[in-house]
Amino acid sequence: MDHFPLSWGRPRNDAVDAYGTFPIQQRPNHGQDTFSSGIQHTQQPIVTGTSVLAIKFKDGIMMAADNLASYGSLARFRDIKRLHAVGEHTVIGAGGDMGDFQYIQSIMDELMIDEFAAQDGHALGPAEVHNYLSELMYARRSKMDPLWNAILVGGFKDGQRFLAFVDLLGTTYSASTLATGYGAHIAQPLLRRAVEGREDTLDAAEAEKIIEQSMQVLFYRDARSLDKYQIATITAEGVKISESRKLETSWSFAEGIRGYGAQTQ
C-alpha cells in the first residue's frame, strides 16, 4: 500500500507532470504496483521442524518427532510439540514451518469439534483426516500460497492400521515405513530394513526400539535435530503421545576420529 496521498491517482508516467507540481514528487516503490506488497503469494519456511518418522507394527502405528523448532541454524524453541492428536484414532506429525503446522492443528481441532457437534454417530478416522489434509494442502499449493509442511498421518480405526504422507505440493503416498525431511534420506533405509515384511509380527517394544535407534542416528547426523523427542502410539486402545524423553547418546567414539576429539597431532 502506498501511504502517500500525493501519489494517489497521479499519472503512471512520471515524465508527464499534468498538475504542474514541479519538482515531480518521487513515489516510493517506483515501478511497482501500488498494492503488490499487500498480497503475499509465496513464502519460505521460517521456524522449522526437522524429520518425523513413523512405522507400522503388529498393533498399530508408531510415530516420532523431536521437540525442536529451529530459526535457520538457531535452535530457537526446544519444547515444541510436533505430534498432534486429531480425534480418538489419529495422530499427525509435521516437519517444515511450525507456524503453518500450528495453523493446521487449529483447523483440525475445529474440524473435530464440528464433526462432534453433528452427533451423527460417525467419527473421522485417519483415512478421512489424511484425505482432508491432502485436499487442503493441494488447494493451497494451487493458490500458490502453500502450507510449508511435510506431514505424516498415522492411525488405527475399525481394526485397520493407516499410515500416509502429504506435503506442501499435495503429494500423497502410503507405505509401511515413512519419514520426512532428512529422515527420508537417513532413517528411511534403516526403517525399511527393520520393518518391511515384519509389520504383522513386530510388537510395541520392538517397534519402539527401532524408532529410538533411528532417532539416535538422526540426532548424530542431522544438525537441526534435538535429543529430546516424543513417541506417539496409535492402537485399538486409542492415541498415546508420550512425555518428552531424552536420547541416550555416546560421543566417546569421537576421540578416535581425527578432527573430532582433542588430538595432540
Binding site: 512520471d14 518521487q26 516510493p28 516503490n29 517506483h30 515501478g31 511497482q32 503469494h41 509465496t42 513464502q43 519460505q44 499449493r141 494451487s142 500458490m144 502453500p146 505440493l169
Partner: peptide
C-alpha cells in the same frame, strides 16, 4: 526515477 532494489524472492514451484 530510480527503481528500488527489491529483495530476491525464491519462487515457489507448484510442480
Amino acid at each position: 526515477a530510480v527503481p528500488h532494489a527489491q529483495p530476491q524472492q525464491r519462487q515457489f514451484n507448484p510442480y
